[in-house]
Nucleic acid binder design. Structure first.
Length: 411
DNA sequence: TCTGGGGTCCTAGGACCC
DNA sequence: TCTGGGGTCCTAGGACCC
């Protein structure tokens, strides 16, 4: 039995793009980029061939095409990614039950107690890489380390198709010159603040006076110092156990900025339906509705929320609540993006409606939901319809978990 | 033809109650 | 007719992740 934990972090390389290349041999070896539908969209993932031209995640589509005119644009397909991800995660479960799915293409494994069966962590990593490559044609980068923080750092050190091991005795040397922003949890802003304190590397962060960090950052100051030292006691927590979603929301960037109330309401209705339907599928209802508006200048926006007396999850109630918030607001500019979110959630057992008409309404909604489940989103609505080009982007996000409650793929 | 969409957690300040 | 403190709930906004 080793005297420290052995954690593994697995990160699929260019996941969505790899899945697409695997599904369509004509795309193999070529620069491709996966995007959402809709007009104003950005690159979600690109193949390594495309990255060689400077194509990056988050770039506007036109910008990516400027970098790489022969770039092949593929509209993302959730179902493919969700399916592939689930099967890969199942494969990982053969090596340990301790798996924490972090996103659709990333997971941590605690293999401390698997070594008596499989030998070494490196061997598990090689087996998994080979099997994932063989079954799905996808490469991954794996990091092995004494904790989750370092395993994630390690998996980032060699891409694509890498395997990096950080042994306890190597931690100090590796962190000494490692830029702080490489640590998961230190983003752009934290980096900027730490840089202002003349802290650039993990080594410097780990040696920093804790009181100085606490004065500046409050409670997370001591956590930051630990991160700089590569200390992380957080366990690998399998997701199913306590994975209750806290909010359900959808947003969309409109194809064109809009000012007319009627236009805004159409989008709000659609968003409310998307939120309501997903909430009902999860069996949750919520008391707090948030309306999010981003204006034409991109930089100004607001989120306004309202908490109701009772929990709701029916689309028209969500819609009404969203309108009520909208009506408390002056819109100083045309609207670029709208979002509707339901939070303050309650998980409900299937309950009988108390009144006949409530029952009818609820049955009608179930019927619509089942038609939508079979034939795709937005075929059946009870309100004004948007033109088909206006359905917004087909939502795809690597942050979705394949099996978890965050999976919004159409079944 | 600029700049997506899905989440989580944290904090500060105000309302309200005892 | 001036002044407490603790607790809970709520809102707005920001940082972080993929």
């Amino acid at each position: 039995m080793p005297e420290h934990r052995i954690c593994m972090h697995i990160d699929m390389n260019a996941f969505f793009a790899s899945v697409e290349q695997q599904a369509n041999p004509e795309l193999q070896g070529k620069p491709i980029a996966v995007v959402g539908g809709g007009g104003r969209t950005v690159i979600t993932t690109s193949s390594y061939e495309a990255r060689a031209f400077g194509v990056k995640t988050g770039m506007a589509k036109w910008e990516a095409l400027r970098c790489c005119p022969q770039l092949i644009i593929v509209i993302g397909d959730n179902k493919k990614y969700t399916y592939t991800s689930s099967r890969i995660m199942e494969m990982m479960k053969e090596y340990t039950p301790l798996i924490e799915v972090f996103s659709i293409d990333e997971a941590w494994l605690d293999v401390t107690h698997s070594l008596s069966i499989f030998g070494t962590a490196e061997r598990i990593a090689y087996l998994l890489k080979a099997r994932i490559k063989e079954s799905f044609g996808i490469t991954c980068s794996i990091g092995i380390a004494p904790n989750k923080l370092l395993a994630k750092l390690a998996s980032d050190m060699q891409k694509p198709d890498g395997l990096t091991v950080i042994k306890p005795e190597d931690v100090e040397r590796i962190l000494e010159r490692m830029p702080i922003k490489e640590l998961c949890g230190i983003g752009k802003n934290m980096e900027r603040h730490l840089n202002m304190m003349s802290i650039y590397t993990c080594g410097e962060l780990g040696r920093c006076d804790e009181a100085r960090l606490t004065r500046k950052f409050g409670i997370i100051g001591s956590r930051l110092k630990q991160m700089g030292q590569g200390v992380d006691d957080s366990p690998v927590t399998p997701n199913e156990e306590d994975d209750e979603v806290k909010s359900v929301g959808h947003s969309m960037t409109l194809r064109q900025d809009v000012s007319k109330r009627g236009d805004i309401l159409k989008y709000l209705l659609q968003l409310s339906e998307m939120v309501g339907r997903r909430a009902r599928r999860y069996g949750v209802s919520g008391r707090t509705i948030t309306l999010h508006v981003r204006f034409a200048d991109f930089y100004s926006s607001f989120g306004k929320q309202n908490t109701l007396k009772s929990h709701i999850n029916q689309s028209d109630e969500i819609y009404k609540a969203a309108i009520a918030i909208l009506d408390t607001t002056e819109l100083p500019q045309p609207v670029r993006q709208l979002g509707v979110k339901l939070s303050n959630l309650k998980y409900q057992a299937e309950q009988l409606s108390l009144f006949q008409e409530m029952q009818k309404k609820s049955d009608a909604i179930k019927a619509m939901d089942s038609v939508n489940d079979r034939f795709g989103e937005f075929k059946v609505t009870f309100g004004s319809l948007l033109s088909s080009e206006d359905k917004g982007s087909h939502v795809i996000s690597p942050a979705w978990r394949p099996d978890g409650i965050r999976n919004v793929a159409v079944k």
